[in-house]
Amino acid sequence: MTTLMGDFGRRMRKNRMAMVGLFVVVALFCVAIFAKYLAPYPPDRIDTSRILMPPSKENLLGTDILGRDVLSRIIYGSGVSLSVGFVAVGISTLIGVVLGALSGYYGGWVDRIIMRFVDVMLCFPSFFLILAVIAFVGPSIWNIMIVIGVTSWMGVTRLVRAEFLSIKERDFVQAAISQGAGDARIIFLHILPNAMTPVLVAATLGVAAAVLVESSLSFLGIGVQPPDPSWGNMLTEGKDNIEIAWWMSVFPGLAILITVMGYNLLGEGIRDSLDPRLKI
């Protein structure tokens, strides 16, 4: 195991894209945690004497329609993005692992029902489903996390099921079964730990997807509600002032782009390093 992990570490370090991704993700965490110290101004400080100022020495990324500092709002917005990403992915991974494990381990009618359920869920344009649920339950940051989570578990379910199907047949699992180990013990102790690799990759990529969905929802005005800063709702204000203040549209989007790219690079990097065979 140690040599395996050593191999993994070595391959990760050699993978330049993965290291860039890791750096971005760690940096974003720091920004979110230390937002209070990093932001030059409070995110909601209104300064009517400095409305819609282009980027300058005082306001590096300019100010918005209320004279609030765009950089400070972006810094505070990072916390929203990360928490939505992580909670949503936590929910979808949990659902996906449980359903996928049940499906792959027990097979038979359990498997058939769960897989049909996956097929059905995949038929919904997920953005439609998310919007519809939000329309019924109302927009709030918690509702968004939950809704994104419960509409994006299908991929993980299929992955975990496939892993279970193949690992179940391996000798060490068969040995455990023949020794009379209970189902729970086999699932959680023997199979699940060996099936976590693709789940980790899917979760990392899932954070990126969730950040994108959250920002889209907030942009449409059904996500994080103003005055709380989120990159998405900053872009809505950017769109309203698109003819006079380009900086309000450019920088929050850049923040989303960098975040999503960071998680994607990290996810792909982990995949390549854990299983070089998958690299194409």
């Binding site: 990126a208 920002s215 889209s216 989007g253 989303i256 790219m261």
Partner: peptide, 11 residues
């Protein structure tokens, strides 16, 4: 993969 479509639209 990383560009939010609505941002691309704005740009």
């Amino acid at each position: 993969f990383a560009v939010p479509t609505f941002w691309l639209a704005l740009l």
